[in-house]
Design a protein around this nucleic acid. Structure first.
Lengths: 205, 205
DNA sequence: GAAGATACCGACCAAACGGTATATTGTCAA
DNA sequence: TTGACAATATACCGTTTGGTCGGTATCTTC
């Protein structure tokens, strides 16, 4: 082979991260199945050989995106913040207030990366489903834990089941995002979340 | 051309319906983008020529599925039933109770056809988005209308906004289905919907 | 500094895709 | 009965797909 223009200095970690990042965006925009490896490569100026050095298959790349990009992102944007408050009602309320205030183009346009992949992939690939489910369960658990502590502290109504309510809250959030996405309407998204706030307040003692 | 084995008797309407039905199932299982025309044809024993006689493009077929299959299906399963009750709280409650009781494999496995397409297609194709939005708006409107009438009849709390609540209820339903789908768990689906029932009851006067 | 491992390159491939072109046949009005 | 058109059939096409492979460059280790 004649002309080999390789990256001057190697940086396998950077290459891997570039690929994960580009794949994340490509999947966000097109879904996993319609995500094009060629487009991902074009957006990273990484070669196909490099890609297949770091990831065995497209599927592996997708699973890595779930575990290494989407998971940590939600961890940062929801879970850690939620764990800080000492009153779960206020914590949830404020967190959602923040989402309402920060409602940006990206959420309205592309929705929730987690939910997108759930709807597309969970019936098609068991590994995807499990990867997504792990994140979902963590989310529900964080909310449930907060509610439980709130019950102990006498802040949350005792006649409620934290696990069930947590499940429902997470479902509602995903639903609000999904509806806002199809309506292409920040207003609908915000109105929807505000009703969720009302519901959350109804859990207070 | 040598071997032309045509259907003895023509039936263009039947052919069209067969295609819509097969396309609906293919899309439900694989999503729109990954839906294969070849597979649809194989499941209908319709020829490619016939398909392209009835539908100009794959996209047209998808839009027809939304308008002629998914729309009417929701109309039948939700909207008409909901319009019958004269107390919206009971109406919604019972309708959801029915969904809880009827929770079948298909809902858990494939989720809601409407929501699936929303998450996949609404950012990618404006016509899809509009077709889906039309159904969504009808859904929200039916619920809102019922709540409004309930307010007039003194059955629903007057200090609530029917449109916002309807939006939120629809979002919650889609959320519950989505979560049950990824959990592959009828139980999670039912627990989630039961919390929605609790919420709905809280709207009563 | 030689050797072996790791990282990267890009041409190539078979399969599947949506879509087209052209031929044929059933249907029905005139 | 026939002419016109709607309906159906199938071979074929260009493109894109995920994936492979032989090769090269850089890095690490001894």
């Amino acid at each position: 082979m004649m002309n080999m223009i390789q990256r001057k200095t190697r940086n396998p970690e950077q290459t891997r991260n570039d690929l994960l990042d580009a794949a994340y965006h490509e999947i966000l925009e097109s879904g996993f199945q319609a995500a094009s490896l060629e487009r991902i490569l074009a957006n990273t100026s990484v070669s196909k050989g490099a890609l297949y050095h770091h990831f065995g298959t497209k599927r592996d790349l997708g699973l890595a995106v779930i575990e290494e990009v989407i998971g940590p992102q939600l961890e940062k944007r929801w879970f850690t913040i939620l764990a800080q408050h000492d009153n779960p009602i206020n914590g949830l309320y404020n967190l959602i207030a923040e989402k309402i205030a920060q409602a940006d183009e990206s959420v309205i346009r592309y929705g929730c990366p987690l939910n997108n992949l759930i709807q597309e992939m969970s019936p098609l690939d068991e590994s995807f489903r499990q990867g997504l489910q792990k994140i979902l369960e963590r989310w529900v658990e964080v909310v449930a834990q907060a509610l439980k502590e709130g019950q102990s502290a006498g802040q949350v109504r005792p006649d409620t089941n934290p696990e069930d309510i947590a499940l429902y809250i997470v479902a509602s959030i995903e639903g609000c995002v999904g509806l806002g996405k199809n309506a292409q309407s920040i207003d609908a998204y915000q109105r929807c979340l505000r009703q969720l706030q009302v519901y959350i307040q109804s859990l207070a003692v």
